[in-house]
């Protein structure tokens, strides 16, 4: 599903002394089937943006459209529930939301709320458990006896069981070790591709944004600071640093290399191996001179 924000402003507690503008005049577009990475500091408006994607917040000004659903102050959705069944949100530390006696019951809770028949729920659980990398034997266990990584997978399975078209991930790898982080991101990437999802990934990790995103949106103080492909965004090293954001390490190194050697190696999402070969040629060039 396409997602479009058109001049969206959101004010918390409007017309009170506590009024606070969290998002101001924000416009962007996410093409159906693509991955958008949203990057920004705490307080940059990321969480408010997420809340607009499934109608937890409705714009104070402007319009949000998600597929055929439109959200604006004059156009409240009659069926918010339907939108929420199409947009799955994996919140930060989703394992904190587990509550049922067994893993199977916990995963079933979401689809039950959307009136999915029992037989269909069971079918989906069978399908999702291997997709999130869990053994079927886990289904009858208590979610609270599992490891942190397993609990997170169960929580994610609960979101996937609703079969959303849009997947919103709020720092999905926070608190996991490097292997766990890679496994979870690879899992989402595979699901994204296989099920033709539209994915919004909120992250602090420039490396993940570089690796997985089609486009990157950088927020600063509630407004759009930058938008583009990873190559376009990470070229703007100075601008990013002016809002205390770093570029991925490979890009940092290339820029230091240029300063030292006077040789620019443009960043084109090349692999470390390719970077090494380019450097080798520059060094060898010097030797044969």
């Amino acid at each position: 599903m396409d997602i479009t924000f058109k001049n969206v402003t959101y004010i918390y507690q409007q017309n009170t002394p506590f009024a606070h503008k969290a998002i101001e005049d924000l416009s962007f577009h996410v093409e159906s089937g693509s991955i958008l990475a949203v990057i920004g500091h705490t307080g940059s408006g990321k969480s408010t943006l997420i809340q607009h994607l499934n109608g937890l917040s409705v714009p104070t000004e402007g319009e949000v459209s998600i597929g055929e659903y439109r959200l604006s102050k004059d156009h409240k959705l009659k069926d918010m529930k339907e939108l929420r069944s199409r947009v799955g949100v994996v919140f930060q530390y989703p394992e904190h939301q587990l509550f049922e006696e067994t893993v199977a019951k916990d995963i079933a809770f979401g689809p039950q709320n959307f009136d999915v028949p029992e037989s269909e729920i069971n079918r989906r659980i069978k399908e999702i458990i291997p997709a999130v990398g869990l053994p079927e034997s886990i289904l009858e266990r208590s979610p609270f006896d599992l490891s942190g990584g397993q609990m997170r997978r169960v929580a994610i399975a609960g979101v996937l069981a609703v079969k959303p078209d849009v997947l919103v991930l709020d720092e999905p790898t926070a608190g996991l070790d490097p292997r766990g982080q890679k496994e979870i991101m690879d899992m989402f990437y595979k699901l994204h591709k296989e099920q033709g999802l539209t994915t919004v990934l909120v992250t602090h990790s420039m490396e993940d944004a570089l690796k997985y995103a089609d486009r990157i949106l950088i927020l600063n103080k509630g407004t759009k600071f930058m938008e583009g492909t990873p190559e376009e965004v990470f070229e703007q090293k100075e601008a990013l640093q002016s809002v205390q954001l770093d570029v991925p390490e490979s890009v940092q190194f290339l820029s230091k290399f240029e300063k030292r050697f006077g040789h620019a190696i443009p960043f084109q999402k090349q692999s470390v191996e390719e970077i090494a070969q380019t450097i080798q040629q520059i060094i060898k060039g010097a030797e044969s001179r």
Binding site: F257, R260, F261, E273, A276, I282, K284, E287
Partner: peptide
């Protein structure tokens, strides 16, 4: 990867600066 590509690095660098220093030494040898 640089070693694989045939660049004769001296030590195992811990940060960008150490690696650049090492490359610079190789670069200016000739």
């Amino acid at each position: 990867e640089l070693k694989q590509a045939g660049v004769n690095l001296q030590a195992a660098p811990l940060n960008h600066e150490e690696l650049l220093e090492d490359l610079w030494t190789l670069h200016s040898k000739t």
